[in-house]
Write a protein that binds this DNA or RNA. Structure first.
Lengths: 154, 154
DNA sequence: GCCACTAATGCGACAAGTTGCAGCAGAGAT
DNA sequence: ATCTCTGCTGCAACTTGTCGCATTAGTGGC
């Protein structure tokens, strides 16, 4: 578990991934439009977690004509390509992980509002138990566990 | 883990809990209003999980003048009393557990959309590990784990 | 039964997404 | 350069909640 904040994801450090987006779209018969260029540019300089609303806002900074539904639809497409993943924060809002090289979940304290990353090793036992006993394959990136942190329990 | 559906919660089987709501509110200096009566009546005949929107809808059946914000605010109050608990479904929407006598989380298959209950025993190891290592107290009722079920993996 | 105190309601505005549909515009073929 | 095919966009309406504020109405005391 590590403190929340800028992650060490390969995202912004690896521009090659972003250069390939156009080709990856073309390979599937999808298109490379100005609106998608803007969103990809925004994602390329984003680390860690962002809400959908934040992404819309950042796109609007580059292109004030940005329409929310276009952004959300493009995010869906990029998720299909494995470039972003989305989950839901403790308040239920969309939360995107950009280029998650280390899949992780989240731990959220409902008392103080802090968030920590939950590494795969922290939940290995759970993941294995659900697989062995129920054949269930956990998508860790979509998990947010809520509770109270050490400090708030005192 | 059990199939989703009507739970064996003490809720509808134990009218005494509902009769006591009025007194529990009074004890805290809170009020017993017609709008709250309607919501409590709806909850009393509800088992398992409901979304906020569904509760609003059911209240409207009894009283067409029902206002959503009143329902949501009353749910907050009832949650303070420990009568309902809320979490977020896989799509991020509010989801209420009525009178959860056995605290549980949820397992949701993103391929087929099915939901299963996740019993405390299934996550004992995780809960203990987070407590021991990080002092984090998990609120299981607020947990929904997403992934793919056995059938959808084939 | 009437008062006063303040909790709760109703309402309107707002936030974050989602969806259907008509028209626009990438991309490859000619 | 133009044509065609269909993926994508922009728009508008809708859904699920949340919030602030003026007004209403439970409750206990007299």
């Amino acid at each position: 578990m590590s403190l929340s904040g800028p992650s060490v994801s390969a995202g912004p450090a690896d521009p090659l991934v972003w250069d390939s987006v156009r080709d990856r779209l073309h390979d599937r018969g999808l298109r490379w439009t100005p609106q998608r260029r803007v969103l990809v540019a925004v994602l390329a300089e984003t680390r860690g977690h962002v809400t959908g609303a934040e992404l819309v806002e950042r796109c609007r900074e580059r292109d004030p004509a940005t329409i929310p539904s276009t952004v959300y639809r493009t995010l869906d497409v990029l998720e299909d390509l494995g470039i972003v993943r989305h989950g839901h924060g403790p308040d239920g809002r969309e939360e995107y992980h950009v280029l998650p090289d280390a899949i992780h979940g989240h731990l959220h304290c409902k008392a103080c509002g802090s968030t920590w990353e939950l590494e795969a090793t922290d939940v290995t036992a759970l993941v294995r138990a659900l697989d062995d006993e129920h054949g269930f394959e956990v998508d860790l990136s979509h998990v947010t566990i809520v509770g109270r942190c050490r400090r708030c329990r005192d």
